[in-house]
Design a protein around this nucleic acid. Structure first.
Lengths: 132, 132
DNA sequence: CTCAAATATGTTATATTATAACAAACGTTA
DNA sequence: TAACGTTTGTTATAATATAACATATTTGAG
């Protein structure tokens, strides 16, 4: 059986740094930040990222090729994700809205395709950036 | 003023090949397909892609780093895009659903961010692939 | 018409993101 | 404890995207 709960050493290191970050992190910036911990190669980062995504611990922001920690309990293993992205400061906020999630999970394509998963990215300028 | 309607030579070449394609095309596969027409470098492709996206003629499928022609009249200059993506055959279908589009365009984040644009990607297995 | 500004092109080089392939170590459990 | 799955370490390379600079073409204001 797959080890669903416990994280391996590298997985824990990568998750820690993503959780501590204020915004989305890119794979190579994670790599540079963990080289002191003995992780030397992109593969080690990407492997940990893949597993963490599979566990629903982190999400990939596709439009930015960057990764954020999961802050929501609604996105059951990343099957239904939504994010708000500021185009100015790059801030990413996970949207946890039950109505939205239900609406989209129930949405089905006319052409008969049954969806297993969705990812939604909203873009705009956040409150903080508007003041500047 | 910007030339909103007319396409330049390279833009037309790139748009043509994307429109003729049955599925999403990647930048380098476009490049290889137009080298006979005198386009030699990635820059030329990426520049054309950027402009075409700006005009709303094509869309980028973020989860695949690939490009499709716009088939919809609803996505006014790419401000509101939704796609259905088959995880087996890689087929991408643009979703043009007024209700969905209105629902999402009207959605606003609790934290006071006003959205200018969204992109939604649904994943599943298409009808055709289910039969196999 | 004509010249300046904006847009597009061509080109070389390089940055960034991601995966392939292989060998070794570790953990789990039958 | 042997076998299997998973994780690790490592080197190399593939795939995606942008920087920077020189030149050409188009467009529109005067």
């Amino acid at each position: 059986m797959a080890r669903a709960q416990t994280l391996s050493r590298n997985q824990q290191i990568v998750l820690d740094i993503i959780q501590k970050a204020k915004g989305p992190l890119k794979a190579y910036s994670i790599l540079f930040n963990v080289q002191k911990k003995g992780i030397n190669a992109p593969q080690q980062i990407y492997r940990a990222l893949d597993k963490l995504i599979g566990m629903g611990k982190i999400h990939k922001i596709e439009s930015k090729n960057a990764f954020v920690a999961c802050r929501s309990s609604d996105c059951e293993i990343s099957k239904a994700t939504a994010f708000s992205i500021c185009e100015s400061c790059e801030m990413v906020d996970e949207i946890s809205d039950t109505k939205l999630s239900k609406y989209l999970s129930g949405f089905n394509h006319k052409k008969g395709m049954k969806f297993k998963r969705f990812n939604l990215e909203f873009f705009g300028i956040c409150k903080k950036c508007k003041k500047d």
